[in-house]
Amino acid sequence: MSDSPRAPEPAAGHPASPRPHHPAPHPDEARRPARPKGEPRFPDGPQADPAGSHFERRIRSFQPRRSRVTSGQADALQRLWPAWGLDIDGRGVVDLAELFGNARPVVLEIGFGMGEATARMAAADPGTNILAVDVHTPGQGHLLHLAERDGLTNVRVGNGDAIILLREMLAPDSLEGLRVYFPDPWPKKRHHKRRLIQPEFLDLVATRVRPGGTVHCATDWEPYAEQMLDVLSAHPDFENTVPGGGFAPRPGFRPLTRFEGQGLEKGHVVNDLLFRRVPRPGRRPASG
């Protein structure tokens, strides 16, 4: 989920007006020249669909969102993506030490919204690299901007499907941990199959997070929190770090996000889940 509020709908034309009223362009949009048809949105930035049709079509746990990219975000995408961005195309295993320029432990964050919390966690823990993955282009640009502004060398931004990244592009036991904060809860029962935290997903995660590494989830949707707790507790490759089981207190390293604050003001209950990957002799790596 994004930390940013939903953009207002464009104003409709007044019924008495001889022609529809068209809202004035956003100032950032007005300064940007029109893009010829077929030309990439950001020639040196993230690809629109990096994996293309190279992999099977399946039910997605995310919904790509289209919203305005500001000039500052576009500038960050153009300048910084070649060095700090990763298009998830599934065409080869990523050398994480080469990607970050060091051999520090790497945590994968799936879904970072506008990136404020990610940037704060990276600044507070420079000894840990964060590979942050999302499909929201404005958020990708904003996180790159924050990383440059704050001198964060331990952030890389992934664009595309995190399942393909885990399955095709990360080596076994290559991650120190996984963070999934406020994923789409898909509240309607017929959509529950789209939720990310499922047994099959954890099978894959267990092959990529090293023994002793952590899986940290947080949600303000209580039914989803209960499902997460049930699924993680039942999985043989993970154990709850909370003595006696149950939800964990919010760890100090997870910042209170703007989105979370808004939920708390509305009376939402935020639940954290903190599980540890345990070794299981004879376990085979997950396959596609």
Rank of each mutant, 00 (worst) to 15 (best):
275 F>P: 01
256 L>P: 12
267 G>A: 11
259 F>K: 12
275 F>I: 07
268 H>L: 08
276 R>N: 07
241 T>M: 07
263 G>W: 05
260 E>F: 04
268 H>P: 00
251 P>G: 05
259 F>C: 13
244 G>Q: 10
267 G>I: 02
275 F>Y: 13
276 R>Q: 05
253 F>R: 15
242 V>I: 04
269 V>M: 09
275 F>S: 04
258 R>F: 08
260 E>S: 08
238 F>L: 06
274 L>C: 04
274 L>W: 13
274 L>I: 10
240 N>I: 12
246 G>R: 01
237 D>K: 05
247 F>L: 01
252 G>R: 15
263 G>F: 12
273 L>E: 08
255 P>R: 09
266 K>D: 01
261 G>P: 12
275 F>L: 09
238 F>I: 13
244 G>L: 11
257 T>N: 03
266 K>W: 09
238 F>C: 00
270 V>F: 04
264 L>W: 00
238 F>W: 11
253 F>I: 11
268 H>M: 10
243 P>I: 02
241 T>P: 00
260 E>H: 02
253 F>K: 05
251 P>Q: 00
262 Q>H: 13
258 R>I: 08
273 L>W: 03
267 G>E: 03
251 P>E: 02
253 F>E: 14
271 N>Q: 14
256 L>N: 12
260 E>V: 13
236 P>W: 10
256 L>G: 11
272 D>Y: 00
240 N>T: 12
255 P>H: 10
255 P>E: 08
271 N>R: 15
267 G>Q: 01
245 G>P: 08
263 G>K: 04
248 A>H: 13
260 E>N: 10
266 K>E: 10
271 N>C: 11
260 E>P: 01
249 P>D: 14
257 T>L: 11
271 N>H: 15
246 G>M: 07
266 K>T: 03
273 L>K: 02
265 E>M: 13
270 V>P: 13
247 F>S: 04
272 D>K: 11
259 F>N: 05
263 G>C: 07
241 T>I: 02
271 N>K: 14
275 F>W: 12
264 L>E: 13
238 F>E: 11
256 L>T: 14
243 P>Q: 03
243 P>A: 13
246 G>Q: 10
265 E>V: 03
247 F>I: 06
250 R>Q: 11
243 P>E: 07
248 A>N: 08
267 G>R: 06
257 T>D: 04
249 P>C: 08
255 P>W: 02
251 P>T: 08
272 D>G: 07
